[in-house]
């Protein structure tokens, strides 16, 4: 999850946020990290660029991007097999 936090900070240009300051279960939107709808699109790009995962169902977004932990779980579950 540490790598994912670093990727989020870099992708979203969060220059005031240190990756280690983002809680695993802290909400990424609204009261938590305060991300907005454009950030949500950037997170979708991040999944595609870094993990080759395409979010096929937009309605999954709020659940997948709730926190770093939910993102990490989604990545683990949908990581394309290297075999």
């Amino acid at each position: 999850m540490a790598d994912l936090k670093e990727q989020i900070v870099a992708q979203l240009n969060l220059q005031d946020v240190k990756p280690q300051d983002i809680g695993n279960d802290e909400p990424l939107f609204k009261d938590g990290l305060g991300l907005d709808s454009i950030d949500a699109l950037e997170l979708i790009v991040l999944l595609q660029q870094e993990y080759k995962i395409k979010l096929s169902n937009a309605e999954e977004g709020p659940k997948v991007f709730h926190s770093v932990r939910t993102m990490a779980e989604y990545i683990t579950a949908h990581q394309p097999s290297n075999a």
Partner: peptide, 10 residues
């Protein structure tokens, strides 16, 4: 050329 950036597009 790769994946368009929404943050730049706006």
């Amino acid at each position: 050329r790769a994946i368009p950036s929404p943050a730049l597009f706006v």
